[in-house]
Structures are given as structure tokens and as C-alpha cells.
Design a protein around this nucleic acid. Structure first.
Lengths: 210, 210, 210, 210
DNA sequence: AATGAATGAGGCTTCATTCAT
DNA sequence: GATGAATGAAGCCTCATTCAT
């Protein structure tokens, strides 16, 4: 139903996507204000005016970058939500692996950087990202942790109250790679394994006994 | 040694500081590119040209904001370094309290946001911040953790290898407050207490036995 | 003689006219430069490219608006020319009534406004309008006045030498309505009656005696 | 009190005036939309940015052209207002002479053209011009006509009710010169003399007798 | 013939930087 | 030193015109 039929529509959709791809590159590299739409157009292989056939102005283009980037992530979250009864340790392993291979090493990283660095000046973007990604992701991990807690897999409700703690080292790793890796490399795989051990050892150490 | 002598020198130093204070406000609010030197000058109560008496250009002003903001922090770090043998739990309590009262609620928060959001485009700033703050802070925590580990206060070397894990929730709290608090408040005190419990329970649970 | 034969030709002529009608609206409202052909096309119910099937460019479209608008007026002038021996007073009454009901209250007003406001920058338009409307109209009134003068209906040759004086209050009324009526309404009927009385009393007062 | 004192202030005022002069030229020649601020700046001998030190944007510059042009005219109107008891014929002669030498042949003509051709799209300008020039001028002529009528100098109250009729041929002459003089010259002096005779013969013809 | 997506030149406006006072 | 008026390069956005469908 939303699949474009005619060649015209297909070509148009391809152009739109090319602009979004180029814009993500340029905006991530330069930031919203310093990014030049000339560069976006050049990188997308279209004329300047073409951008305005799809987006009202620079700001809407920026928002749509984030919106467009979120959609595919949502599918992943849905899949994760299915795993509510999976062992916590296994969930963490899956999530951390996904983060390393599919986020920190790909264009998804750039989207997060954009939200991080421009979100305060574009509350709409922060709001969208929170509503569609953050709150959902936290909710899923919270439910998984809750189940693990009830099963006695973990001994305390810390992650139930603050699922944020699961993600903190992920976002830190992403920031470190962006800012400091040049001066002091960080073994993200090791970091995240250690983080997981830390979370899980806590669990194993104090088996629930009530 | 660096104390200004004459009144003129003092007045000059005050102007310089007023510009830096104003610039921190404006740059943090708008980002480097969107920040207008007109606004900085107005907020500092000086003429636009005066800025150029102290700073070569906009970029140098930006760098000096960070440099100037770091100096006072260094003193804190030195003090913390003295505490190498303090119990880890107590160190964490001190550090987290400082973070809540002196970072997340003050202009220091803005400095961190600037490094976060502009650091990738201004490697010199990232480099300075890493060299003067990050690596020192991590080093101190690592040594404290190492001592605690040797004393048997904690049961594993995780924090020795990745002292980053101590700070991850701090940076996450700061980001959350900047981006998402409007939509979903976060009890930072509770979060950090929980984080500390999590770190320390690990320690207590498995007394070192090798 | 110029009647389109085939249905296709008729449809084409209708499109052309629709474009001209729309263009008159848009150009009158915005002026030549600010008028957007997008708006013209939308209002005419055609695609933008269609305009270029009938008119070489924006400027030619503008010219043709005026040309097309003039043709129907010419018929009126012809009719008036037949009335060369009609009493001057009656002619004025007829002309002024026509002006009030058929010019100042209709799209003809817009044509005049276009000529007024853009004529200096588009001499071709001024020239066309002068040749086809102004000079003819003035000539007719001059001849009528001349006849009236010869008959002794009016006592002086002022209107023979300057038939412009008959029209001056008309154009002034049109301008006033366009610019100042909002701030100070003008009773055009009263104005024109007064104007006519003024012209005719002159006539009646001094019967020709040579 | 409003005289600039320092050299700086004088130079600034001169620049402002140079910009206004240049802008009148360019706007009158091209119309508001087609006028290019680049051209204004070049003609005024300043940089583009300098315009924005004095005027918020193109539209404010446009308004200020008219406002600045009106001020000197006001003095003339005041002087005319003093002449309330002067014989009507003499007033008309004075006004018409002024119009020929000081309006139709100078930059004042351009101001009127601007009001004429752009006033509908810039109601503020029409409003200003009406309030400061039109209504005042009409009021003065009305009072002068009223006095003449009371004195019996003119036999009817037509000009009291519609002082507009005095000015109609003036505006017509201005328009003619702008649009049609190339194709058919107009002897403005003769036209205005004839107009005056027409107005005054009416008066003489029917001496007031009540 | 008719369409409307695509183009890219051009204009308004901003703002970092300079420099005469 | 301090000022702030002046500069002009640069960027966003519009819109007349073209052309593949």
C-alpha cells in the first residue's frame, strides 16, 4: 500500500532517500548550523532546489533524518520485546553485540551523535527520539529485568528501577570513540563484557531467597 | 607568580574573564557555529572588538572557554588524588555528591555539554579535555580501585581495567537531564546511589580469595 | 473569422483564456516581479509548463494580459464614437456611469492598475495601451467636445484642447479607491456628478457668442 | 536638539541619507520587488551590510524612503496653510507652479510614483502618505475654497465638497509624463492653466447672490 | 498536447573580522 | 586600550524556465 508503483514515484523516493543519506553525513560531520545544503545537494547528486521539493526547510530536513533513521530501529526493538522471558544474560549479550556491530560501527552512530549534540536546540528531535526509541528500549529492558528478578535470576531490583544503568556504558563507549579514541583507544568489546559480568555477578552473588 | 599587579592588569583580567563567562553561556546555548559574538560581547558588557584583543578569533575563544573552565577542576582532581587510600565506597560517595551539586547543577555542566557536542569538530578541545580531565580522573579512580582491590575491599579488577564504568552513569544522567528530563524526569540521586550499590555489592559479595 | 473550429482548438483557447484570467488576478495583486507563475497555473487549473505552450515567457504573458483585456474595451469605444453628435452632457453621463459600473468595480480596474504600476518598466504595455485605448478615447471625447463647442453647447474650447480633463477625476477616483478608501472613503458617484456639473456649468454659463 | 554633533554622527547621518537617495532611485526605477539592495548599496557607495545598520530589512528601507521624502513637503504644506485667505486663483497658481517646478521635474515625482505603484501592496505606506500629505493637502484646499466661497469668489461649493478635483489633473499629468509622453507629449503648463481657467470661470460666471 | 519534477541563478540577510577614532 | 561602524563573503531559499514522460 505504501509501495511506490510507477517509475516516477520510485525515482522520487530514491532521490528523497539519497538526500537523507547525504544530509546525515553532512549534518553529522558539521552540526546543524554549520552544515551547508549545497554540500548535501552535491553529495546526494541533486540540485539545491530539489531538496525543497521534499523538505520545507533545513530544519525539517534535519528532523526527517532522525525520523527516517528511527523506523528501522523500531523493528529491532519489537523483536527484542518478544524476548521478554529470555535469560537476562543472554539478552544483554545480544543487545551489546548488536550495539557493537550495528550501531557503533555504522551510520546509526551518527544519528545518535546528532541527537546528542543538537537535541537540546531541537526539542522536537529529542522528544521524538525519546518517545520512539529511548522510552521503548528502557521499557523492554525493564520488563526483561523484572522477569529475571521474579525468576530469581538476579538478586535485586536495581535494573528494574533503573534500566538506564544497562545502557550507560554503551552511550559512554560511543562518546569515547567519537572524542577520545584517537588519544586513548578503548576496547569496547572488553568494556561491554566487563560491564555485563559486573551486572550479572551481582545477580549470581546474591540468589534471591525470600 | 601569575598574579596581576597593576590595576590595569587586573581590569584587563576581569574583562577577559567576563568574556569567557559570557561566551560559555552563549556557546553552550547555541553551539559554536550558531553562537554570535555580538551576543557574547553584549552579555560580557564589552564591545565586539574587545573580544579580539584577548582572542585571535572565534575558535580560539571557544578553546579558551574550555581551558579556563578546566583549571579549577584540576584542583579538585588533585585533592581526590590525595585520597588514594580512602575506601572506594567513600570515594564514590564523595565523587557522586560533587557531581550532583557542583557539576550537573552549575556551569560545569555546560562545559561538558560543549565538549560533548562540539568535541568531534574541534579535536583540540577533545584532546585538551582528555589530557587534562578525563585521563587524570580515570587514572585516579583506577589507582583507588587498585588499592581497594589489593586490600580486598572489592573482589574483582573490573574497575581497575575499566574505571570508565564508574563514570558512565554520571554522563548518562547529564545527557538525560539535558535532553529527556522534560518528557520523563530522572531521579539522579537515586540513580547514582543505585549505581554505587551495584558496584559495591559486587565487591562485598565475592571477597577476594586467590 | 478567428472562431476556433475543432473541439481541440476550442479547449486550447479556453485554456489560454483561463491562464490570462488567472494571470490578471495574480499580477494585479502582486505586481509583475512578485507574481509567481506557480500561482497563476494553480489558479488557472493548469500545470506550470502549460503556460509556456501559450506564452514565450513571463513578460509576454504580462503583455498579453493587457492586450487581451483591451479588445473588449475597443468595442465600447467604437460605440461611443458613433455618438459624436450626442449632447456632451449625455455623453459624460454615459461614460461616467460606465466607468463606475464596468470599470471601477470589475477586473477592468485591475488592468488599469497594472498599466499604471508597471507601465514605466514595460514601455511596450504603455505604448499599446496608449495607442489602442488612451489616444482613441481622448480623440473621441475631443471630437464630441468639438461638436458641442461648434453647436454652442459649451462656451470654450478647453475640453477640445485637453479632453484629458474629462478623465482626470476618473483616474483619481480609481487610485483613491485602491490606496486611500480604507482611511477615508470617497463617494465616487457624487464626485463624478460634481465633476460633470462643474464641466457643464462652465458651458451653460457662457453661451458662445462669436 | 536633533542636530548631530560629532563627526561620527554626521558621517552616519550622511550615509543614511545616501542610502535613502540611492534607494529612491533604484526602487522608483525597478519597483520594490525587482529592486536589488546590491544596486542600492553600490549607488550609495556603501557595502551591502551597511544598509542593515540603518534599516531592519528591505521593507523598512522602502517605508523610510517615503517617510523621509514627506518631511520636507510638510513644511510647504504648512506654508500653504497660512494662506487660507489668499484668493483661490492665486493659490491655484502657486500650487500648480510648485507642482511643475518642484514635483514633476524632481525626485518628488519618483516618491509619488512609488506610492502609486506599490501603495496597494504596502498599506503602511499608503496610510502614511494619506495621513501626512493627502488629507492635509485636501484639508487646506478645502478651507481655502470654503473661504473663497464665503467671500463670493466662487459661486458653488463643489471644491469645498471635493477639493480632490483640484488635484486630479496634477496626478494625471504626472502619470501621463511617466507613461505616455514618449508617444504623445503633453504640455503640462498649458493643461494646468486651462484647468485653472475652467475652475475659475465657473466661479466668475455665477457670482454668489444669496 | 500537457504535465510537474528538476534545475540553478540570483537575492536578502547574517555575522566574523577589521580598523579608524 | 576600547570601541562599534563598516565590510563583504557566504548561506538559505525562491522561482522562472526546461524537458523527460
Amino acid at each position: 500500500m505504501s509501495a511506490p508503483k510507477t517509475k516516477r514515484q520510485q525515482a522520487s523516493e530514491q532521490r528523497r532517500q539519497a538526500i537523507l543519506d547525504a544530509a546525515l553525513d553532512v549534518f553529522a560531520a558539521e552540526g546543524f548550523t554549520a552544515a551547508r545544503l549545497d554540500d548535501v545537494a552535491a553529495k546526494a547528486g541533486v540540485a539545491k532546489g530539489t531538496i525543497y521539493l521534499f523538505f520545507k526547510d533545513k530544519e525539517e530536513l534535519f528532523e526527517q533524518i532522525v525520523v527516517a533513521a528511527i523506523s528501522p530501529v523500531l523493528a529491532r526493538l519489537e523483536a527484542l520485546a518478544e524476548a521478554e522471558t529470555m535469560p537476562l544474560d543472554q539478552v544483554l549479550e545480544t543487545v551489546f553485540a548488536f550495539f557493537q556491530s550495528e550501531v557503533i560501527a555504522t551510520w546509526r552512530r551518527d544519528v545518535i551523535w546528532l541527537v546528542l549534540s543538537e537535541g537540546r536546540r531541537f526539542p522536537r528531535i529529542a522528544e521524538i527520539y525519546h518517545r520512539m526509541v529511548i522510552s521503548k528500549g528502557l521499557g523492554i529492558i525493564r520488563r526483561i529485568a523484572e522477569n529475571a528478578y521474579k525468576r530469581g535470576e538476579i538478586s535485586s531490583d536495581e535494573l528494574v528501577r533503573f534500566p538506564h544503568l544497562v545502557f550507560a556504558p554503551l552511550i559512554m563507549a560511543l562518546i569515547w570513540n567519537g572524542l577520545f579514541a584517537k588519544y586513548q583507544p578503548l576496547d569496547v568489546a572488553d568494556l561491554l563484557n566487563t560491564h555485563r559480568q559486573l551486572l550479572m555477578r551481582t545477580a549470581a552473588a546474591q540468589p534471591k531467597e525470600d
